[in-house]
Design a protein around this nucleic acid. Structure first.
Lengths: 180, 180
DNA sequence: TAAGTGTGTGAGTGCACACTTACAAACTAG
DNA sequence: CTAGTTTGTAAGTGTGCACTCACACACTTA
C-alpha cells in the first residue's frame, strides 16, 4: 500500500528531526532514528537514500514546520505594521521552539554545511522563511536582518544553556528572550 | 626537553582549530589533526587526554584568540563612547574571522554542547568575551545583546554561504556585514 | 490458486577510527 | 659510559556504524 510507506516516512522524519537535533548528523546512527521510529534500520534505508538523504529530508520537514508556525503567527498579528507583524512572527517562533528540537536541528544543520547537499537544504529553508518574513511583514532589510540576528542569538542561548547561568553577562545576552 | 613538548602542543592546537572548524568534532579523525600538525596520531594522544581533551583545549585556544583580537580592537577605538568602542570591537572581530577558522570552530563547538565538557568550554569562552565587552565598552545590556546577536548572524551567513547568494532575502541578511 | 507487488527484517560485511602498546632514538645527568 | 628521561612512532586492537542482501509475510489481482 502506498499510503502506508508514506505514513512511515512521516514517522521516520519526525524521529529523525529529534534524533539529529540532539546528537547531530555524524554522531547519530541511523539505528537510533530507526529505533525512535519503531522500525528496523534496514527499512529506513529503503525509505530514504542513505543517511544523507534522510538528513536532507528531515531538514525539509524542519523548515516546513518553522515556516508554517511563522505564517500562522503572522495571521495573529494585532495590526499590520511591519513591527507588529514581526513581533507576532517572533512570538510564534519562540513558542514553536520551546521543545528545542527545531532550534537544535538548525544548529546541527549549519554545522555540517561542508556537505553541499546540506548547505543547499539550509539555504532553501532560510530562503523560504526569509522571503516570507520580508514579503508578509513588508519589513525593511534592516528589520529582517535584525529579526534573524536575534533568532540566531537564541541558538547560542540554548546550546550554551545560558538560561541557567545567572551571571551578569548571561543575563544581558538572554534579556527579554522568552525562556522555556 | 620540556619546551619542545609545549611547542608541539601549540602546533597541534592550531592544526586542531583548523581541522575541527572545517569538519566538526565527530567527523574529524585525530589522524587528520596529527597529519596537519606533522606528527603521528599516537603522539597527539600523548600530548592531550583523548580527542575530547584535544577539542576542549582547541576551544580554549580559539576563544583566547578571539578575546585578544577584541581587546586589541578596543584599543583602536576612535573615542570612548560605548558605541565607538563596540564598533571598534566589531571591526576587529570581523577582520579576525576573515580566515573563517575561528568562526566555524565556534559553530562546531555549539553543535556538540551535548557533551558537558564542551558546553562548559563554550560558556567559559563567551563568559570571557562577553564580560570584557560589557565592562570595557561600558555598554548597556541591550547593546551587548545586539553585539552578540549580529555576531551570531555572521555564523549563519558564513555557514550557509549567503555572500554568494544574490537574491533579495540574502542581500537583506548580509547587508552591511563585511565580506571576506 | 498462483503470481506479483509492497512492506518489513535479521544477519551479515567491510571499513573507519579512537585509543594502546611495545619499542626506539635522542638527549641529559651523574 | 651508563642509567634515566623525553620525544616520537609503527603496528596493532576492538568497536561502532553505514549500507546490503537474502528472505518472509501480507495483500492484491487475474
Amino acid at each position: 500500500m502506498r499510503s502506508t510507506a508514506e505514513a512511515r516516512r512521516v514517522t521516520v522524519l519526525n524521529a529523525a528531526v529529534s534524533a539529529f537535533a540532539r546528537t547531530g548528523f555524524h554522531a547519530t546512527p541511523v539505528t537510533a532514528v530507526a529505533a525512535a521510529a519503531g522500525i528496523s534500520e534496514a527499512y529506513v534505508f529503503r525509505l530514504f537514500s542513505g543517511k544523507l538523504g534522510l538528513f536532507v529530508a528531515a531538514a525539509g520537514a524542519c523548515f516546513d514546520r518553522i515556516a508554517a508556525a511563522i505564517e500562522a503567527g503572522a495571521e495573529q498579528a494585532t495590526g499590520s505594521s511591519p513591527e507588529e507583524v514581526l513581533d507576532a512572527m517572533g512570538a510564534a517562533y519562540a513558542e514553536l521552539i520551546a521543545d528545542r528540537d527545531l532550534l537544535l536541528f538548525q544548529v546541527q544543520a549549519q554545522a555540517v554545511t561542508d556537505i553541499p547537499e546540506i548547505a543547499e537544504a539550509v539555504r532553501a529553508g532560510y530562503r523560504r522563511v526569509a522571503t516570507f518574513v520580508q514579503d508578509r511583514a513588508g519589513a525593511t532589510d534592516a528589520q529582517v536582518q535584525q529579526f534573524f540576528a536575534y533568532g540566531q542569538l537564541c541558538h547560542l542561548i540554548v546550546t550554551a544553556g545560558l538560561e541557567q547561568v545567572s551571571e551578569p553577562w548571561a543575563r544581558a545576552l538572554t534579556a527579554g528572550i522568552r525562556h522555556p
